[in-house]
């Protein structure tokens, strides 16, 4: 990974990012869902940015657009300097994406999964073998590296997923509620993993609705509700903006203000 020297360069930048899902039954208008409504986001290298919001706020849709799984309805942006709408292949090479639903192929082993992804990331055979063994060691996969993923525990699966996400050494990590469903130990491992990536100078954008996680890890937080980014800044900046001390109060105040403003008179 080659990172820019300054940590003020945007690793992720979006401009008026929007996503509207059509009516599944093909109708127009009434049943369309505006999941994301004009999000402007900027995350830097060497920064952990937390996207905080209630269920259905648009966090996952935003992250999936950044990961090039979904196409924005309008707007766009860059990932590590690459336009992720115009050049999605290039963008995918620069990100490691992980979510609760980013499943592992159940009938492949962790070693086979890493080899498969590595080869499709264009890592040459001689380099790939060493890289896979390095990750097996780093994430302590040795004991189950040759067992099918369908037989692994949730913690073992999560470690394999992380190894898969960082296999190609991406400068940007996008994590969608990465601790959902994990036990205490696995959650702790995940938090350590995120903190370490920051120390390496990578940009980590992750969504969560666990406030303690956000408070502990994030350099900056973006609060999102009903598809809009309500506020963005350090925790202290958000406290100052709302006049609240505790993060849950900050969050409630921002969401309540926004909903009040949007409510019909």
């Amino acid at each position: 990974m080659t990172l820019p020297s300054s940590n003020t360069v945007d690793a992720i930048r979006t401009t008026d990012l929007r996503k509207t899902f059509p009516d599944p039954e093909g109708g127009r208008g009434a049943n369309e869902v505006e999941a994301v409504r004009g999000i402007d986001l900027a995350c830097h290298y060497g920064e952990i940015y937390g996207l905080l919001g209630p269920n259905g706020a648009g966090k996952t849709t935003t992250l999936r657009m950044l990961a090039t799984i979904l196409v924005p309805s309008s707007g766009g942006g860059t990932l590590d300097g690459v336009d992720f709408v115009a050049r999605p292949l290039e963008a995918r090479r620069r990100i490691g994406f992980l979510s609760a639903s980013t499943g592992l192929y159940p009938r492949l082993t962790p070693r086979e999964t890493l080899t498969y992804f590595g080869s499709l990331h264009g890592i040459t055979k001689d380099v790939l073998g060493a890289r896979v063994e390095e990750l097996v060691g780093t994430f302590d996969l040795t004991a189950f590296a040759d067992r099918r993923c369908e037989t692994l525990s949730s913690g073992q699966r999560q470690r394999t997923s992380i190894a898969r996400a960082v296999l190609h050494d991406p400068p940007v990590l996008i994590l969608d509620e990465p601790t959902t469903g994990l036990d205490i130990l696995a959650t702790s491992d995940m938090i350590d993993f995120i903190a370490t990536r920051k120390d390496e100078g990578r940009c980590v954008l992750f969504s969560t609705h666990i406030l303690s996680e956000a408070e502990r890890l994030c350099d900056r937080i973006g609060v999102i509700d009903r598809g809009r980014l309500l506020a963005s800044g350090t925790i202290d900046e958000l406290r100052e903006q709302t006049g609240e001390t505790y993060l849950d109060r900050v969050f409630r105040a921002l969401v309540a203000d926004s909903r009040k403003a949007e409510a019909p008179a």
Binding site: A67, T68, I69, S99, T102, H121
Partner: peptide, 14 residues
């Protein structure tokens, strides 16, 4: 159903 469709979509290939 297995949640691997998204994993496949992340491959940096056409």
């Amino acid at each position: 159903e297995r949640g691997t469709a998204e994993t496949t979509m992340l491959l940096p290939r056409p």
